[in-house]
Design a protein around this nucleic acid. Structure first.
Lengths: 248, 248
DNA sequence: CGTGCAATTGACGTGGCTCAAGTGGTGTGG
DNA sequence: CCACACCACTTGAGCCACGTCAATTGCACG
């Protein structure tokens, strides 16, 4: 079978719709072929399937091709703390590079296609391909940034602002992936949203209800429609309740 | 002047007491010399001096040689959100690699010696020295981890647990640097601790007072002595108030 | 010795958690 | 096709940890 056929019929990086959000970004053809050759793709993960569990030796990083996942850690009390929701193009596992063991868990929220990137091979290849090395650093840097922003959100904004920010962030992430930024389906439960934002299910539910009553959004189960994005931005930004003023 | 004299009389990586916490870790002599040669060391930074400000183009990463700093971002309301306190050996600036601009501010909390590592040179060198590249990735991975743990702390633990965890974390970081883990000086104000932990000054002050009244610690201004580390661990871990039970 | 910021302490208010009851939607087995 | 079980989600009532506001003390520096 010719390579043309391969790229037409098989799942690979070359024909992946979100490759510019992922590792392949900035890679030339020959480097991309090399990267693609080390990536393994297995059958889809189903809701509840885990990519890895805390403590297991780091074998691979994972890239989301389709679907969505949550990553979480367990604290000393054994409670789950969700640290991220992953969408197509996201890379998973950077936090485990340091001590070569997975630091937490990663679990599919729905049926998902996952690209598995054996870490040793990636590490080797990144020594040969500077653009790949730089892209890995960029993605790690992005994750650090996202975590810091998240930290700012939960330490200094009230519940309304957190939920509004969450809706906006999903909106912008869907937009980057060529999907609607004003109407989307949540693959996570209210409880998972609350856990992620440091709120209870009840609070999340009440606020979505409130936003709906104020005609800012429309919710129907897992489906969300953002009707007044500007208003959501205001709520996310300048919190309406004079907001705890930490020093300027 | 011989190289022996150089290493005896000048500040460099070879004679740096905390080089195994920093970039040099695992580097052989010749690589270490190369790294050292690109590093610039200027006069000490004084309390309040900033290494960089948000928006400026990324020129260097910074390593703390002595002293301490805070990094912070400003949210949409212009409020400061402290994202990290830095001690000797820490590297600063990873979050800025992604878009080649500093994402926040970094400011000395006291007189501090800082090693400046021009980013372009570091990037080049990391292409030639695999051990350096791997150490950079390890340090970035560590930072991601620290941020996730911090996220777990502020989203799901009460004020007591946060302050206790903060005291313990400082303790372990001082220990790694060969300093006392049971008695140390805070270089940050109560307000800065509160900002970092998502609490008000008053709450931090009250809890330090409470811990002291319970003979768990002894505070005298910026000086802290941990008297009952086990107890602090209990408070940091299993929170005494049944603690918001997110799902297990 | 005065100026100014850091820290403490008290009184009070409230946002969001807890507990509890009810609704809705979905899959399974009879 | 219905009955039932099981979740996810919603909604209400009450309470408390922590934020807000305000006054005071302590300490460093010129």
């Amino acid at each position: 079978m010719s390579t043309e056929n391969r790229s037409a019929n098989y799942i690979n990086c070359q024909n992946c719709g979100i490759n510019q959000l992922c590792l392949p970004y900035t890679l030339d053809d020959s480097s991309l072929t090399k990267l693609d050759s080390i990536i393994e793709r297995k059958r889809p993960y189903q809701r509840g399937d885990t990519l890895f569990r805390a403590g297991e030796p780091l074998t691979s990083l994972y890239a989301v091709r389709s679907g969505s996942l949550k990553s979480y850690i367990l604290n000393d009390n054994g409670e789950m703390q969700i640290t991220a929701f992953h969408l197509p193009g996201d890379l998973i596992g950077f936090s485990s590079i340091s001590d070569q063991r997975y630091q937490g868990f990663s679990e599919a929220l729905e049926t998902s296609m996952i690209c598995e990137i054996p870490y040793d091979n990636l590490e080797l290849l990144s020594g040969q391909v500077p653009t790949l090395r730089r892209q890995i650093m960029r993605l790690m840097s992005d994750e650090i940034n996202a975590d810091k922003r998240m930290l700012g959100l939960v330490t200094s904004r009230n519940a309304e602002a957190r939920v509004a920010t969450f809706l906006l962030e999903l909106s912008s992430r869907f937009q980057k992936r060529g999907l609607s930024s004003s109407e989307y389906r949540l693959s996570m439960t209210r409880a998972e949203i609350g856990n992620y934002l440091g709120l209870t299910v009840e609070t999340v539910s009440r606020l979505l209800g409130k936003f709906q009553r104020e005609h800012i959004i429309k919710v129907s189960g897992r489906l969300v429609k953002l009707c007044d994005i500007n208003r959501i931005g205001e709520i996310a930004g300048l919190s309406p309740i004079p907001c705890q003023k930490k020093q300027a």
